[in-house]
Amino acid sequence: MTDQIILEARGVTKVFKGLTAVAEVDYRLIKGQVAGVIGPNGAGKSTFFNLLTGLYTPTEGKVVFFDQDITKVPPDQRVVMGLGRTFQLVSVFNSLTVLDNLVLSITRFTPYYHNKSKFFFADRTNSFIKENCIGAMETVGIQEKKGLKTSGLSYGDKRKLEIAMALSLKPKVLLLDEPFAGLSDTEIDEIVHLINKIKEGLSIVIIEHKVSKLLNLVEKLSVMHEGRLIFEGKPQDAVSDREVRRVYWGEKDESSAIKC
């Protein structure tokens, strides 16, 4: 089995008005891999995702997806190519019902989108769309909430809805930005279970703050600090890495942190 690189960042840098949020990051995601990215607040993790998915264009460097340079490709096009994501702060449509959130994400990748008379004139509550939506809800376990306004969902359910929406885009790579943040322990377990369930045939990158939740979930862990990748390898090794320990647990020597 050869390891095919599915998503790659080459020397990606992002500078915001003099602040370097991401600095010369080289990153490779291998097909079928579940990878994690951790780092302290402001390390540049979300910015890195935003560069990969096209919310920002890098100041320097390239993003390559399936051997294709997508640095200049707009976000919606990247989604069509198979790059799905969720956001650090759950981002769903609060003004729509739960069902309509899924209608929006699901129809884009069904024949309904390409058959314009259906996309513009078919009743969106028809059985075909509805079955698809309910299937997507069942995957994440929110089917009882389908008629509710999304604004009435708990944060955890919104998170599940967001993941269901991302999955309905039939992505090949799924980028999850802090999927556990703000959730209770049981909800975290549910999301972990969900990720394990969906990872078949998918490549996933998960951003997290703490190593502990990723230890048993990811095959590769990258540690980001001040815009740079300071470690890449097995999650167990990260815990024992000196540099990582210094950034994470014992910053006794402040001056050396500035030097590097």
Binding site: T53, L55, P74, P75, D76, Q77, V79, V80, R85, F87, S91, F93, N94, S95, L96, D100, V103, L104, S105, T107, R108, F109, Y112, Y113, K118, F119, F120, F121, A122, D123, R124, T125, I129, M165, L169
Partner: peptide, 25 residues
């Protein structure tokens, strides 16, 4: 009442988010 109608409401609430669902808004 169509999926397009939902798309419009999506654009109203958060256009950027709609782009991340694969729509050329």
């Amino acid at each position: 009442a169509s999926p397009y109608g939902v798309l419009l409401k999506g654009i109203k609430e958060n256009e950027n988010r709609v782009r991340f669902l694969g729509y050329n808004t």
